[in-house]
Design a binder for these strands. Structure first.
Length: 202
DNA sequence: CGTATTTGACCAGCGC
DNA sequence: GCGCTGGTCAAATACG
């Protein structure tokens, strides 16, 4: 049985390296390349390594339900990347940039979240929303805010790792259907029209 | 009525 | 120390 992982991103397995001077330009290029006309289910870009936006990952349109990472990258040359990898004490922080008009889409990732705060951000007309995983003893936090430079996008920041599986795990119990085909099939669905059943096998 | 959200208060860190 | 800012708490409120 295959259990697609939920987007509690912890991957440092970056397989492709590129040089990028401008993160937003990069994002737009990737969106052009793998995006579709239907912006209701656009691809999602994430990046990690604490406050510095130095690493990224392209995930499926359904990043909020599946972490697929068909393509990953880091910014900088290979020497810089090696140097960074020697310093691993960074907290696990991942930021997803999602094209969406509805912030609730960013909230729906299969985990249960409890909102505990909302603050205006200097320089931004949009507030930041603070959420905690509502599972007992799990200290994962999640922040949601709109991208000031591009209000079409929502920035979702995950901090920490869940110590439990998602309460809404999607699984495939057919031996003939592998994870990749499941993800590929799924990526042509829109976020709100899942055709696979949700289950809680735990 | 139990649970989730809202929202002002409070706190910590930082720059001046 | 003071003020600003981002993050968190918790009482009040809303909701199902």
């Amino acid at each position: 049985m295959n259990y697609p992982s939920n987007p509690n991103p912890s991957s440092t397995d970056f397989t492709e390296f590129f040089k990028f001077d401008d993160f937003d330009d990069t994002f737009e290029k990737i969106m052009e390349e793998i995006g579709r006309e239907d912006h209701s289910s656009s691809p999602t870009l994430s990046w990690s390594s604490s406050e510095k936006l130095v690493a990224g990952e392209i995930t499926s349109p359904l990043q909020t339900s599946l972490a697929t990472s068909p393509m990953s990258f880091e910014i900088g040359d290979k020497d810089e990347i090696k140097k960074r990898k020697r310093h691993k004490e960074d907290p696990i922080i991942h930021v997803f940039k999602t094209k969406s008009i509805d912030e609730k889409v960013a909230l729906d990732d299969g985990y249960k979240w409890r909102k505990y705060g909302k603050k205006p951000i200097t320089g931004s007309p949009f507030p930041r929303h603070y959420h905690k995983c509502s599972s007992p003893d799990c200290n994962v936090k999640k922040k949601i805010e709109r991208d000031t430079n591009n209000p079409d996008y929502i920035l979702t920041t995950y901090e920490g790792q869940h110590n439990h599986p998602s309460p809404s795990v999607v699984y495939c119990d057919s031996d003939d259907l592998d994870l990749n085909s499941l993800i590929n099939n799924w990526s042509f669905q829109t976020a709100n029209t899942y055709s696979f059943s949700h289950s809680a096998p735990y």
